[in-house]
Amino acid sequence: MSETPLLRVEGLAKRYGALKAVDGVSFDLWPGEVLAVVGESGSGKSTLLGCVAGLAESDAGSISYDSRHDGIVDLRALSEARRRWLLRTEWGYVHQNPRDGLRLGITAGGNIGERLMAVGARHYGRIREEAQEWLERVEIEAPRIDHLPRTFSGGMQQRLQIARNLVSRPRLIFMDEPTGGLDVSVQARLLDLMRTLVTELQLSVIIVTHDLAVARLLSHRMMVMQRGRVVEAGLTDQILDDPQHSYSQLLVASILQG
C-alpha cells in the first residue's frame, strides 16, 4: 500500500433545509480498498456517496483525492470540467437502477464505448474490440453487443453498467446498492463477478448498501451510519462479529438467520 490515501474525506456535511443528511463524516480510503457504507434507508449513505462523487454539492468539509496526473486535488474546489473528467476517466459510478447509468436507446457496444469516445478514441474497430472484450469479462455473450440494453435482464443490465464504468480503467468506483432489486441467485453471481474484478483490477471501491451480506462478501472495512453520522467504523469482520454501538448491534441482530 502507498503512503497517502487515495481519498480523504474530512468533516463532510450536507443539509437539506433543517435536515442534516450528512453530518461531519470523515474517512480515508486507501488504494485497493473496499469500503462499505451501511445503514437503514434515510441514514444519509447515498447522499454521502453523491457528495463525495461530486454529483451533489456538499455544504462543508473537505474531500481530497490523489489523482493520476495532478497529484492531490481538493474536489470541492475543483472546476466542474475537471470533476467530470475525473468521473469519466479515473472514477466509475454504478447506480442502483441500471436505467440511470445506461443509455437505453443505445446498443450495449455504444454504452461501453461512450467513455472511450469521450476521452478521444476515434477508431471504430478498436472501440468495438474493447467493448467486446468487456462484455466477455462481465459474462454477456458477444452477439449481444448490438442489442439494446432494454432487451437485457436486470442482472445483465447491471453487469453492462459495470462494464461501461470499467472500460476507462478507473481507480475508484462508487456503487450505490448495486445488487438492489435483483433476485438472490443473480445477486450472488453479480457479487462473485464484482469480487473478481475488484481483485484483478486493484480497484478502490466505496459501496453503499443496506445488505450486510453484500458488505461482508465484498468489503474490507465498513462504516455504519445513522441519521447522517458515522456511529461505528472498522474492519468488516470485526463489526459484524462484535458490533459495539447499539445501532450496529441492532442491524446485525436483524439479519434473518437461515
Partner: peptide
C-alpha cells in the same frame, strides 16, 4: 448547454458509432 460549455462531446460520436453498428 453544459455539454457545450465543457466541450464534452463524446456522446456525439456515440451517435455515429450506433450508425455503423446497425
Amino acid at each position: 448547454r453544459k455539454l457545450h460549455a465543457l466541450a464534452d462531446y463524446g456522446v456525439m460520436h456515440v451517435r455515429l458509432y450506433e450508425d455503423i453498428a446497425r
